[in-house]
Design a protein around this nucleic acid. Structure first.
Lengths: 347, 347
DNA sequence: CGCGTCTACTAGAACGTTCTAGAGTCGGTG
DNA sequence: CACCGACTCTAGAACGTTCTAGTAGACGCG
């Protein structure tokens, strides 16, 4: 009879312990103003009756929910990794998290609407696709922290990785390995795509390789990577930086099937340090975002806004980190080349 | 001034529209008992003031939260996939989902406790590690549906894939391809491990291959697969069924590094049809669980229990499905295949 | 003894909603 | 004209908690 018996309420506990509801409340939330003996008695009774405070009633009265709403996308492995850090950070700040997921059949807007009804005190959005105007509207009512999307708007806090720098790291790494013909596979209309492309361009210019810079249209999926690979194959570079890991995986596959060896004939750098890029089988050199700091900063921001603590800047830019694995090697390190196309004509 | 102005409440809407709070309530939840003109006027005002019903206050009064609590593990790609279906199913059933995540630093118990305070009407647990006794205790207070874990207890509903059958499918497939020396890499203490091992044994016996059955200790991680591979290599079988996809990936890597070709020298079948197994790069033959039905059944169960609809069985056993990809081939098909793909790239 | 102060406790309002019971209006009917 | 039912609407209680304002009693002090 799950729904038969009423659940035990603070009134039950109070009655059983022979005190007023108010005092029971004081004891339950550890507030000062109750005698030691009484406190113990109330706690005992509560334990015995299996009392659980009703967080909604509590909120209703106190106005504070100590609840942070989080919108994340189940399809993005990176988002899921972030949740771990976020829970930890929220916990130490004394806040709880309510999650609302974006799925292939559930968009940003729906996810957001759900949270607004839950009376969160702030929102943390993972790479939201919602238009800035809409986000701004919401931020008039409660603090909004955006992760991994560089929206510029007073009223919105932004925590993101310096993607431009990330691409530069990738290029620097490849140049240090002796590569000169380095291409970039673009992320299309995905977030961060512009910054990553820009960082690639900057770095190529800095190294005096402007002439051999080449940007190929790609995307965020495996297919996009495969398509980009086919575009590259007619005149393959010796190295390529790819928008993200998934795209890089698609590229790797096509490139290998065409007989090119990685990293001997072609070095590949991904982006995001997605879980699967760590698989020995893939072993992708990639640019990692500092997930833990990102999570901690997001929570810190949100809480500061809620509690009115002044915050210096609207935007936090975190440094990326290059993770060198098995898909990059020195240029021209390909002793015995097989099947693959010989050196393409130099330009 | 996020927290400055009070948020608009039903009373505000009612006052502005010149009706009673009760009537405004009727309109907002679409209940019968309001005139068409008034209804429209109230809705207009609500829209203009940006009114959002407070779900907690609503719950507090109505007793019903229409909330289903979900505990999932961020580390498990399969769980994340399930969420998609779950949201959809809950939506059509008229319920909302509250998610509570298990992370490396946040265990089952914590995740559960959070949901209990939120006054969910039922819990949906993804492969919970919580002891049965504890789950049973909770199920005395509210319906509990367990996914992917075969707990036997009156009071707990279970929705899971027939893992035994899944392993049998894998073995049948391999036998049909002419394999006879088929090994199994075990999942250790992971859920479903026993059933999958049992299914393997059954199938081997059924095919009269008892003598060549061989179970190697493994686990649920990539490392476990790598370790298992090394155990197998001294006397390699021609095919192997592996506890799950991640483990299979680890195995694949070691096996290939040792010069064995897959699928020519060794056929490999994984389990779960995890997202990455679909990557062209990995292209793993695997056993898929019917995620959508699983999600739908879980919600149906939960709702039935909440609303007191009689439910025939405590346990729903869903049929698995074999997904044939590139890591399985006919036994002894090994003669001189090159590294490259003879077959056209798959879609 | 009167007064102030401290501690332990309590009564009752409040939060924003839903629900119950009932009030007013109107057109139709005996 | 009295009565009915249908329809639209309203007043006020209720949900489980926290908060405000206060009371009762003990104690100290002049």
């Amino acid at each position: 009879m799950p729904s038969g018996e009423r659940r035990t309420t603070l009134a039950d506990v109070a009655a059983e312990a022979g005190v007023s509801v108010a005092l029971a409340s004081i004891v339950m939330r550890g507030a000062p103003g109750a005698g030691a003996a009484t406190r113990q008695r109330v706690l005992d009774v509560a334990g015995r009756l299996g009392y659980r405070p009703d967080s909604r009633a509590r909120l209703l009265r106190s106005g504070r929910s100590h609840l942070l709403g989080v919108v994340f996308d189940v399809r993005h492995p990176f988002h899921v990794d972030l949740l771990t850090g976020l829970y930890a950070a929220a916990d130490t700040a004394g806040y709880q998290l309510t999650l609302s997921a974006v799925t292939p059949r559930r968009d940003d807007r729906t996810a957001l609407a759900g949270l607004l009804q839950d009376r969160c005190e702030a929102l943390v959005l993972f790479g939201p696709r919602t238009p800035v105007a809409e986000l701004a509207g919401i931020s008039a009512r409660l603090p909004v922290v955006t992760l991994m999307r560089g929206v510029r708007h007073r009223g919105l806090d932004v925590v993101r990785t310096d993607d431009r720098r990330g691409s530069q790291l990738a290029v620097d790494h490849l140049v240090a390995l002796g590569h000169r013909r380095i291409a970039h596979v673009d992320g299309g209309r995905s977030h961060g795509s512009a910054e990553r492309r820009q960082g690639y361009r900057d770095a190529m210019r800095r190294h005096g390789l402007e002439a051999s810079a080449r940007v190929v249209p790609g995307g965020s999926g495996e297919d996009d990577g495969a398509r980009a690979a086919r575009l590259l194959l007619d005149e393959p570079p010796t190295a390529v930086t790819v928008f993200n890991d998934l795209c890089a995986t698609g590229l790797l596959d096509v490139v290998r099937r065409h007989g090119l060896r990685v990293p001997d004939d072609l070095s590949v750098v991904g982006y995001d340090d997605t879980a699967f890029s760590r698989l020995a089988h893939i072993d992708l050199t990639t640019v990692a975002q500092d997930i833990d700091t990102m999570a901690a900063q997001a929570i810190t921001r949100a809480v500061a806004r809620i509690e009115g603590t002044p915050v210096a800047h609207r935007e936090v830019l975190l440094p990326p980190r290059l993770v060198v694995r098995g898909t990059t090697a020195t240029a021209g390190s390909s002793p015995g080349r097989r099947a693959g196309p010989p050196d393409p004509p130099r330009r």
